[in-house]
Design a protein around this nucleic acid. Structure first.
Lengths: 199, 199
DNA sequence: GTCTATACAAAGATAGAC
DNA sequence: GTCTATCTTTGTATAGAC
């Protein structure tokens, strides 16, 4: 969690977040060490730790912002009619190099109950399931999804699919098409395509 | 990879594997350090590293054996008629405490292309997708699966679902039912239940 | 508040003795 | 086959400068 309120601190905090993401993208999650990140951001290790109490908090903050951005993009079209679809989520994430790697590795690490980011992810998954369920229920209310679909179970499966497909993609980006897989899953549920808003 | 051929070495190697799994189950993946494992197995750090060149090789060997065991269990019933179903895979895995944690964390770590176990998992995922596809094609040949199902895409999704659901289960074992989710996915594909062999 | 230097514990791994 | 001793790198706590 970021604590500062002063312009200089805020600017440095932002810079650290940006740099961290770039380092993960260029050198990988393993080499995104406190030392490396601090150096890339132009300060000492302890200087960096002044802004983020620990490496875990830094990474959690990056993912917190990704979620906010995703959420905003998903909702932006509610009134405009051209909202990104559920199936676009992996494309949005993967368009920022390094984010998939950071998310996949960090979420696995924090599955240890004693990890400092455990509660963050636990809550996040609970939220993700609930949000997905709401979206599916919305589809059903619009008559785009069969009554036979169980929104709760399908939502959990959808979240699991997103995580699992990202992992496979990291191992084999050439042969794994994340967007295609998510679309296929939704089609299997019986989801009908969005009515064309321009028609 | 295990190198020894002598009885004493083999026995120690087996003991280390057993001990490692127990330590992961009892103390978690993080505390399954070379030191801790060596101590639990009754030798020094370097003593342990003589049997397995690195921590990564030790973990890879554990998972290699799990896969063999799973494979054997899945095939055991081909002639007997009571083979474990696809949906039983998570139950089989989760019945060995610590294995899910080890698998989830280790597979995420090794997604780094420079990780020594990267090729192991890359090949493993390729195999898992191929095997799943064969199983689904078998179902289709038996008339248990609709022609509309794309075995390749469904296989990739199934593997992803298994991974993702295990991660969510680690965060929330109370509310996540792994077997139920996999069964739901297969049902959504339109899979008809096994014909009762006793009938 | 912002930051540097120092110090330290724990990790994985290696060299070479027995 | 197993050991001791040593090396390097990791994250971070502490003390204090500005």
């Amino acid at each position: 969690m970021v604590v500062t309120k002063y312009p200089k601190g805020i600017a440095k905090t932002e810079e650290i977040l940006t740099v961290a993401l770039r380092v993960v993208a260029e050198k990988g999650y393993n080499r995104a060490t406190i030392r490396e990140l601090a150096e890339a951001a132009g300060l000492s290790k302890t200087g960096l730790l002044h802004h983020f109490g620990s490496k875990e908090e830094l990474f959690a903050e990056i993912l917190r912002r990704r979620d906010q951005s995703d959420e905003a993009q998903m909702q932006s079209g509610v009134t405009e009619g051209s909202a990104p679809q559920l199936a676009d989520l992996p494309r949005i994430s993967a368009s920022v190099p390094g984010l998939v790697q950071l998310y996949t590795r960090f979420s696995a690490e924090a599955s240890d109950p004693e990890h400092s980011a455990h509660a963050f992810f636990r809550d996040r998954y609970e939220r993700a399931r609930r949000r997905s369920q709401e979206v599916l229920e919305g589809f059903r209310a619009d008559g785009r999804l069969p009554e036979s679909v169980d929104p709760a179970r399908a939502a959990t499966a959808l979240v699991a699919l997103l995580d699992g497909i990202q992992l496979q993609w990291l191992y084999d980006p050439e042969s794994i098409d994340m967007v295609d897989e998510v679309q296929y899953f939704l089609a299997q549920l019986g989801l009908k395509p969005t009515p064309d808003p321009t028609a």
